[in-house]
Design a protein around this nucleic acid. Structure first.
Lengths: 223, 223
DNA sequence: GTAAATTATGACAAATTTGTGAACATAGCC
DNA sequence: GGCTATGTTCACAAATTTGTCATAATTTAC
């Protein structure tokens, strides 16, 4: 049915670029606007925008106002981007029908997961949100992993990492790719940190741990 | 049998929007009117309105008058919206056959619960409104919880929270999600307040308290 | 076979998140 | 007005996760 269009609104071009990269990598068509005013114009000039991602803090017209104007005429799903320290303004959010909040900085995985969850919800194709492979079952909704029926206790990062591996079964993933997808975009540390997480994952996964292969000189691969 | 129609009457468009969002999310079709006069006209022009939600304070024709006019010809269930400070004119309400009052600000859970309770009552499909899981029985109608037959004394919020957990058994719920569903729409505070409620819930629930799991880095989950 | 590069591992430090008790606020009630 | 129950906030402790680093083990290139 063609690519779904997502409108990204943020005053920082760097942030727009970031969002665009993540989303277009997932097969979405991304439109950009640098403030609320441009966004509203663009929204109404363009057909079939499936979802809008709005930064709250913007000059000229802020996210709330933009949300309000779009909501006057459309029920398009809206995600608000907030900075970590921002006060919650649920009142506004509720009244405006905001569908989801994402706090900066976020990880690409989270971003994509939320976007897909919303689009799935709106399109009503309620598929179960689980990944499964040879006895390894990863349930994203419950945030739970079982191997051969047994529950495996994973930390948040471990869970995200395994999910990423399983989503890319058979694909060799460089450390850079992994960092760029599973870690927050403002993480600047050592890529070696992945090794440590892989180590823990492998040990927690018991025998199934060697499903995570080392690709020498490259990174890792799940299969 | 198609979507049930609910007529929402309030002079503030923001409030109408809010109600509409919550209700349409539950699968109702929502009609709007901005004052009593419009509401009455719309009510008689439209077939099969299953329920009316009326704000008390409105210009042109207030909620009481609108209620009176509708009642002259119809037994449709009516919910009155009152502001927190408003004196409740129970006498009038009784005489007019108001079915329920909801005080602003309300939480989405409450709104939906009342609406469904009334619709269930009127349509006579008297299903027991209880959630049950491994000895934990939560009776929404009676607003009572028992564990292994023993009565557990819960405060209002505790009850709502537990109900929300049980309705979403097995789903990892972020604090934001919980806040957005269980708390009033004008709640501005700290998400950590949930922790405190969870603490109390767990302790009141005794051994069953550990059915509420902590999902580290995410939120909570009931299972 | 040896050196260089890369990865695995364990220990530890730093950062984050959650649990908890107490203080504070508020509303309803006698 | 004072009481009491409920809800909220706060600060600090505890738990847990995450990141770093040194060292050992492994692989590759020559």
């Amino acid at each position: 049915m063609g690519k779904l269009k997502i409108l990204v609104v943020d005053d920082e071009s760097r942030m727009r670029k970031l969002l665009k990269d993540f989303l277009s990598m997932q097969g979405y068509e991304v439109l950009e606007a640098e403030n609320g005013s441009v966004a509203v114009d663009l929204f109404f000039a363009t057909q079939d925008i499936a979802l809008v991602i709005l930064d709250v803090m913007m000059p000229v017209m802020d996210g709330w106002q933009a949300c309000r104007e779009i909501r006057n005429y459309s029920k398009v799903p809206i995600i608000m981007l907030t900075a970590k320290g921002d006060e919650r303004d649920e009142l506004q959010g509720f009244q405006l029908g905001v569908d989801e909040y994402i706090t900066k900085p976020f990880s690409p995985k989270i971003l994509v997961a939320r976007v897909e969850a919303i689009l799935r919800r709106t399109s009503q194709t309620g598929e179960a949100d689980t990944l499964e492979y040879e006895g390894i079952v990863l349930d994203k909704t419950a945030h739970v992993v079982t191997i051969n029926g047994e529950n495996i206790d994973l930390s948040f990062k471990e869970f995200e990492l395994l999910a990423y591996f399983m989503e890319n079964k058979g694909v060799a993933l460089s450390r850079d790719k992994i960092l760029n997808s599973v870690w927050n975009y403002d993480y600047f540390g050592d890529a070696r940190t992945i090794d440590t997480h892989v180590k823990k994952l492998r040990s927690k996964m018991g025998g199934s741990g060697d499903r995570i292969k080392t690709v020498w000189g490259m990174g890792y691969k799940f299969e």
